[in-house]
Amino acid sequence: MSTLTLSKAIGAGLRRAMETDPKVVLLGEDIGKLGGVYRITDGLQADFGERRVLDTPLAESAIIGAAVGLAYRGYRPVCEIQFDGFIYPAFDQIVSQVSRMHYRTKGAVRMPITIRVPWGGGIGAAEHHSDSPEAYFTHTAGLRVVACSNPQNAYTMIREAIASDDPVLYFEPKRRYHLKGEVDLEAPLSGQSAGRSQVLVAGTDVTVVAYGALVQTALDAAAAAEREGISIEVIDLLSLSPIDYAPIAQSVRRTGRLVVAHEAALTGGVGAEVCASITERCFEYLEAAPVRVTGHDIPYPPAKAEGHHIPDLDRLLDGIDCALGRPNSRSGMGAGS
């Protein structure tokens, strides 16, 4: 066991993958000499050389497009997109090429590409440095999408993502980079990029599903609710595509109430998918309509106002009250709220 921050855990996972597989190569802006703007790749270029850790020119489409070529040639590229909001120049390569190559070639060509994305808000950043673009990718068949939430799963999941023969979008909650935790560096890999959600806290009254940075908020909510005698079950999705619904459905069959939380906008978000799928599976068990606690349907606002956009503990507790039919901000308001 080692005590690591989430960011160091990702770095340790990258290092481990590079040590065990010579085909693993890293590409990204400022990831070499600087070690990345978040220092995730610190020291890797010094140890593995410039052929395996490439500082790339400023061209996101080329980072991903070149990874496609490297994958064609048998490599296992790990791309860093410097910030969530700069993935869009690479969108075409990801959606039109990376996601479909295996399908198009009838399985002949594999795309074991990992795309690391420092992700989400809450850090007081400039525009385009706080986006939550995950739903664009969960909507795209052929991609796996995962989101880590603590040092242990960050370490294990980056290794699984790299080992996966499918392309994986790996979202890293920036505002949890400094979160510390015990990491078992020998924890077994599941053999495929994480396809399982995880019950973090068992509870009986409401099922709260979260991922990424909001997992911590959900844990805080469970602790706060407990003080009021309410028992929350917290589930970390970990994998956003595919989603492992079994633990969630089992939970909702017991609690009858579901709250899903994310920073990303409401409309067309992962929360919508979870609510629909769980309603399909658990309709007759539901005691109340599922509740989504999410960012608003707005562009990410100036950082001084970001606390009004991304859900915090109070917003989540309010959503939990709503699911429980207790007085809450939506009481007496239309479904639009």
């Binding site: 608003h296 349907d297 901000s329 639009g336 709220s337």
Partner: peptide, 24 residues
């Protein structure tokens, strides 16, 4: 003000969201 100027033309769903958030 975070709800201002998302669209040029009226957008009922966003208006409802703003109302809800004000109420919240």
């Amino acid at each position: 003000s975070i709800f201002d100027h998302v669209y040029a033309d009226p957008h009922p769903a966003l208006e409802q969201r703003r109302e809800w958030y004000a109420h919240y």
